[in-house]
Amino acid sequence: MKDLKSSDIEKIKKLKAGDHLFLSGTIYVARDRVLNEMEKKKIFPSFLKDSIIYHAGPTEKNEKGFLSFGPTTSKRMDRFLPFLFENGVIATIGKGERDVDIHKKYGKIYFLAFGGLGSLYGSKVKSIEPVLFKEFKSEALFRIDIDRFPLIVFIDKSGKTMIKQEK
């Protein structure tokens, strides 16, 4: 298992489909509503350039201060990929298969996080801060610091996938 930081951009770009790793560092969280709003209003904050976007929506923190924060289905967000990639996002994280051709076209990476395991991913989120569209609650754009997220490279920059995709 490799350990990588989100700032290791060149190393991330070289990852191959099927590689598995622990990712740490700062990443951003965006899902359906906020991406729709950003695209519609042509808002793309400069801090998202060279960033990794995690498709997810956290729970509230419970009375013990813990939260659950696993990935959501990426497929729904495929329509926003050209917008993200053209603005410099280097990779996305989510659950489930997604459009391979777009990744191949832009030479970008898609990381698979395991769905349904919110407590595990939540325990690895060290800080969380809504940075845009805070009124969207769990669907806001968040900046998070993560410590060793278990991930698999599902699609690499050449468009290779870890599992043969049936169309």
């Binding site: 997810a56 929506g57 956290p58 729970t59 419970n62 009375e63 013990k64 813990f66 939260l67 659950s68 924060f69 696993g70 395991f114 769905g115 349904g116 395991l117 919110g118 407590s119 595990l120 991913y121 939540g122 325990s123 278990p150």
Partner: peptide, 18 residues
């Protein structure tokens, strides 16, 4: 990861899935 998630949900009282 599945086993660890079950353990963490129990320990932290967090939902299995967000």
């Amino acid at each position: 990861a599945y086993v660890d998630n079950n353990r963490l949900s129990f320990k932290n009282r967090t939902p299995l899935c967000q």
